[in-house]
Design a protein around this nucleic acid. Structure first.
Lengths: 245, 245
DNA sequence: ACGCTCAATCTCGTATGCATGAATGGATCG
DNA sequence: CGATCCATTCATGCATACGAGATTGAGCGT
């Protein structure tokens, strides 16, 4: 699961997780210099990372201002969930068409992992696995593009839940719904599976209520923490000096 | 419709059109230097443009090789059409839910434009307008994200048709099908509209047969032509020298 | 005391340079 | 005569430099 580890991927992953876990609250400024300093790379690369995060809807980078963590509006949230419902339905449909017995075990494995994480009170991990379920489902559809889109949608939904959702139920009410969906898939009951999925989405979506104000965070500390967790080391990474000839 | 005109948008639009019109055949190398020279910008910006085109599936830019015009595989083509069918259905559904009388006129206007272009034998323009119909439909759904996805999908479909499709029927068999879809939308008949749309997609999709080899093209000539058409001037644009203090 | 203007500073936009890795053509060997 | 290996050339990866726009804080005026 872990990437090859080009520094640029580390920075991308670190920022993504930091945003999704709300360690970097919406509205937080993300200056290219500072980020580059902490990850040991130049603004050129940071810029690429921020561009990618923007295309994923996690960062808002307007023409000549400092990029900030995205603050999804309710309208955007509605759009995201709407499209996601549609693609989830399609994913379910395709998965049933191309069903193999191994699929059930694979999905159940994920649900178990999520359960385990939740029992360990690792809410963030559990939340991530909850989203992973849907991405895996899309992957099982055999459609790479669908998987990509679903991945992006799940990410955006996570941010939306982090912003508008109730503080601690990070992504899902419980994995029970996932289990039911798996059962319907296994039975080949497309209509029921889609119905369940839709209900599931409703539950997730119906947590668009609260609101919070973007407080200032110690960007440095957060980055160091996340970069460390991912790269396996901590603290700021110094820029690689000119190597000896 | 025309952009504000940052050079970077011009380059992006020019390359996009050149690729979709098959003036730059799949496999054609796209060196950053050369492109930059022709659009009067540095490799830094070209790189950003190429990255965007890659994310749109029009360019293939592998780690350390020169970027090339994308060569979609049949598997990719299948994925694209599959997802597009799903989103088209959803778009139709939403448009009917939020229908306003003005929608019909708007869509019909596009169809008429397409007809006119086709009568003038401007196949490329007609093809573009044919795709535009679907993007507009998605826009009328009121879902910005859906519009974005549809836009990307239509673009990719255009490339696929350019590669695998029959030489001259550039995007659509005819606007008749569009007219029928509009009628169903106006009648609020979601099932029929979705059925028509699906049939329409089938027709478009069923043109995955031929193949062609990537011949070498005079990149310079093509770029000059397309840059001229978009920017309103022609020829290579010299890099802006250091301006006097 | 409050608001406005302007200057100092913080970032971004973009070009360019240097180093490294791929592509290519020629020379050599079988 | 053909294939392979190596050197040269080309194109990219990345950092850095410089100029310009945005931000903000201080000083002035009312």
């Amino acid at each position: 699961m872990t990437r090859p580890s080009p520094r640029t991927d580390i920075a991308h992953e670190a920022l993504k997780q930091a945003i999704l876990e709300r360690a970097l609250q919406p509205g937080t400024k993300l200056p290219e210099d500072e980020i580059g300093a902490h990850f040991g790379m130049s603004r050129t690369l940071v810029r690429a990372v921020l561009a990618k995060l923007q295309s994923e809807g996690l960062v808002d980078a307007r023409p000549k201002r400092t990029a900030i963590v995205a603050q999804p509006t309710l309208a955007e949230a509605r759009d995201v969930f709407e499209v996601r419902r549609g693609l989830e339905a399609q994913a379910v449909d395709l998965v049933i068409k191309r069903w193999k017995p191994s699929f059930g075990a694979e999905l159940e494995g994920l649900v178990r992992e999520e359960d385990a994480a939740r029992e360990r009170h690792e809410e963030h991990v559990a939340g991530r696995l909850g989203g992973e379920f849907h991405i895996r489902l899309a992957k099982l559809s055999g459609n790479v593009l669908l998987e990509r889109y679903m991945s992006e949608l799940v990410t955006r939904c996570s941010l939306i839940l982090a912003v508008y959702g109730s503080p601690h139920s990070h992504d899902h009410s419980g994995p029970n719904e996932h289990i039911e969906i798996i059962a319907a898939l296994r039975a080949g009951d497309a209509a029921k599976a889609i119905g369940l999925m839709d209900a599931h989405m409703s539950v997730v979506e119906r947590r668009a209520m609260h609101d919070t104000d973007p407080a200032s965070v110690a960007l440095g500390d957060v980055l160091a923490r996340y970069a460390g967790a991912i790269a396996g080391r901590d603290g700021a990474i110094p820029l690689k000096q000119k190597r000896a000839k």
